[in-house]
Design a protein around this nucleic acid. Structure first.
Length: 715
DNA sequence: AAGCAATAG
DNA sequence: GGTTCTATTGCTT
């Protein structure tokens, strides 16, 4: 989750204002020489709840809780007034508030989309936007402030919103014109978020990220606060414990406690040498800096994610068959997301968590391996073939960790694609050029200099759509201006489209696809591997999947089959239809026969949201292509053979893969499915994700990376 | 490159 | 702090 509305307040203590910071030895390379930075932190109010209330206004007046598994991850203010808090168990919540309205929040799609719209909106004003979870954003508006200061004399500047410890402050506004300007910008942006997206938020204005984040929560719902440098010590001292300091997590908190340090003050006063003995010089310095409200970290715009993963946790999983099914389920979802992203994963990782009464959390183990190019290509292409091969890769990795011959007890499985490469890149020589220039740290100074093209306020006032468009334009402009040295090549529209989320619709236009065979073709010409299978499907073929599976796994599957042969009858109608959809959402799917018309149905079925029309179109071709394919594989090899085939297929197993599994295994799967004896204790979460709008980000490869750097790094 | 640890929301 | 699912970064090998 990423909810953290109320509470949170961290502290730092000490007496340093950033003015002092400048003189410190730890001063970062790119620190501005003359003036301090102006950093903003935005935090959307109970984000998930707000999104749900927008989707269903009727919920506004009622106590609303967003449920995930068995806990309330967040709730609206009506519910909070009745004593609910985030992360409260559903039972406790209902006890406190019987009339509580619960909305399932496992599907993060809507939240993710809205989250990116917010970031996108902010980016239209200032390129230096760093996301922190779904509901928080940092902005470095230093350049914007300075530009505006030049335009308008700072004389009559007044602050917008609160000023931390205002009462006890002697002077203020006129002494900090730049922060005052920052507060005006914050107010403007909050208003933009409200008018364009309908979301209220809190904002913090300060001279660094740490302080901006700390102040943003001082006045809770829908308000903003500015922290003046002279109040740094105060806000730090106000924190109730070291854990409240952003950057000091569970582990570090424990280690500090072991040193006898509990409060911010304790850390501030602790001998640096001793601290360094425990954490090393660098970490020690950073920790002590944090305790003093000093934070040199830069606002680093993050592009598209560097990895995509899907995972599920459960009470117990102890059979290879279950693992196979779960992995397939996760992979199917992940591949769908990967396909939308457009980039090609070069490495695959499987992570598991073994049951452990003690030390519940940290027992994750993982194994990874490179993804052969031809397979990676299929993933991006949307070919279902890849599933079988990835599945076998996954099972091999699984074997590296688990001895399938001895009992095991897993409580989590995760699949991950990383090392994402842009399609068009081709890894040319230029690639190194881009990857070289530390994609990471870019001095704020240089960043700011590149942002001179930032536009003024009030430019984005239209509807969300207009705003997106607008953002698009401004970004284009900025890019062209601030990226002279970049051997930019392809157009940026695609990326923006994705980022903006609204239009994202069409994927084809993207340069990356030029190399790839058009989806439509795929539609009529199933990829190689599958063709042959179809030909000799009737018998007990065991093509792709089974064939690729590690021998020991094959063995086990076969043996387990013999052992557990059930007399399952088939029949169930609706489920069998589920098979049509390529995305294996176990759930409900369509209930109508596999007709070509139901094309988009499958996709939308997977995500219950209704506002993703645009995105759906993006995958329309993808899904229809697969539907076509599945129709072939399922419909053409029906009756005859002994396998369950098209009519019978566990709703939680991908039909295509299922059809390619050996009959024995199919039987077993069916058997289990019918008995509903799924071993998953916990209401196996749904894994939903799939952020249609979310992807964008620079890969290490030239092609898109180029664009992304233009957008996000401005360097 | 692979695997783990820490942090965060 | 717990909980769930991601994601990033840095350390170690």
């Amino acid at each position: 989750m990423d909810i953290d509305d109320e509470d949170d307040d961290w502290n730092v203590s000490a007496e340093s204002s950033d003015m002092f910071v400048m003189g410190l030895s730890s001063d970062p390379v790119g620190e501005a020489p003359s003036s301090s930075r102006v950093i903003l932190h935005f935090d959307l109010d109970c984000f998930y709840a707000q999104v749900e209330m927008i989707r269903n206004p009727a919920l506004r007046n009622k106590p609303l809780g967003i449920q995930q598994k068995y806990i309330i991850v967040t709730c609206n203010y009506v519910a909070r007034d009745q004593g609910l808090t985030k992360l409260m168990s559903v039972t406790d919540a209902l006890e406190k508030c019987p009339q509580l309205v619960l909305v399932k929040g496992e599907d993060l799609t809507h939240y993710r989309e809205m989250s990116y719209k917010v970031t996108e909106l902010l980016m239209s004003y200032c390129p230096l936007v760093e996301r922190l979870g779904f509901d928080e954003n940092f902005l470095d508006v230093t350049e914007m402030v300075d530009t505006k200061m030049e335009q308008a004399p700072s004389t009559e500047l007044t602050f917008s919103g609160h000023i931390y410890n205002e009462e006890s402050l002697a002077a203020s506004a006129s002494d900090h014109p730049r922060l005052a300007m920052g507060s005006l910008i914050a107010a403007e942006l909050r208003e933009a978020i409200k008018s364009n997206l309908g979301l209220t938020s809190c904002a913090g204005v300060a001279t660094n990220k740490l302080l901006a984040k700390l102040v943003s929560g001082t006045f809770k719902p829908n308000q903003q606060t500015t922290l003046l440098p002279e109040s740094t010590a105060d806000i730090m001292a106000s924190l109730s414990g070291l854990r409240k300091v952003p950057g000091i997590g569970h582990r570090t908190g424990q280690r500090l406690k072991a040193l006898g340090l509990l409060t911010v003050r304790d850390l501030q006063c602790f001998p640096p040498a001793e601290l360094a003995r425990e954490f090393g010089a660098a970490s020690a310095q950073r920790l002590q800096n944090l305790s003093q409200g000093i934070d040199d970290s830069l606002v680093t715009p993050a592009g598209p994610p560097q990895s995509l993963s899907d995972e599920d946790s459960f009470k117990k999983m102890s059979s290879t068959t279950e693992v196979l099914k779960k992995v397939e389920e996760l992979l199917t979802s992940l591949m769908e997301r990967m396909h939308k992203d457009g980039r090609q994963p070069a490495t695959f990782r499987l992570t598991i968590r073994r049951f452990s009464a003690t030390n519940r959390y940290f027992s994750r183990e993982s194994r990874q391996c490179p993804i052969p190019n031809h397979i990676g290509q299929k993933i991006t292409t949307g070919s279902c073939d890849a599933l079988a091969q990835l599945l076998s890769m996954a099972m091999k990795l699984f074997q590296k960790m688990i001895d399938t011959n001895t009992p095991f007890h897993l409580t989590l499985i995760n699949v991950c694609f990383s090392n994402l490469q842009s399609k068009s890149d081709g890894k040319g020589s230029i690639t190194s050029f881009f990857t070289q220039r530390s994609p990471k740290k870019v001095t704020s100074v240089s960043q700011q200099q590149d942002n001179l093209s930032v536009k003024g306020f009030s430019t984005c006032t239209g509807s969300p759509e207009n705003c997106s468009t607008f953002a698009n334009d401004t970004l284009d402009v900025r890019v062209s201006r601030s990226t002279p040295p970049m051997p930019s090549e392809q157009k940026q529209p695609p990326l923006l489209r994705k980022f903006i989320g609204t239009p994202l619709s069409v994927k084809p236009p993207m340069p990356e696809w030029t190399q790839v065979p058009a989806v439509p073709n795929e539609l009529h010409r199933p990829s190689q591997p599958l063709e042959p299978d179809l030909s000799h499907l009737p018998p007990d073929v065991d093509p792709d999947v089974f064939k690729h599976l590690p021998e020991s796994i094959q063995q086990e599957l076969l043996s387990s089959f013999q052992a557990g042969e059930r007399g399952d009858r088939q029949g169930t109608s609706s489920q069998s239809v589920t098979a049509i959809s390529c995305n294996q959402k176990p759930t409900n799917q369509l209930t109508k026969p596999p007709s070509k018309q139901s094309s988009i149905a499958a996709h939308s079925a997977g995500s219950d949201n209704g506002d993703d029309r645009a995105k759906q179109t993006a995958d329309q071709t993808f899904f229809s292509a697969h539907r076509e394919r599945l129709r072939i594989s399922c419909a053409e090899q029906p009756e005859g053979n002994s396998r369950a085939s098209n009519t019978e297929c566990p709703s939680n197993v991908d039909p295509l893969v299922f059809s390619e599994l050996p009959p024995e295994l199919q039987q077993e799967l069916l058997s289990e499915w019918k008995q509903q004896k799924p071993v998953l204790k916990i209401p196996s979460k749904k894994l939903e994700r799939t952020a249609p709008t979310k992807d964008k980000k620079a890969t290490t490869k030239a092609g898109q990376a180029n664009n992304l750097l233009n957008y996000f790094k401005s360097n």
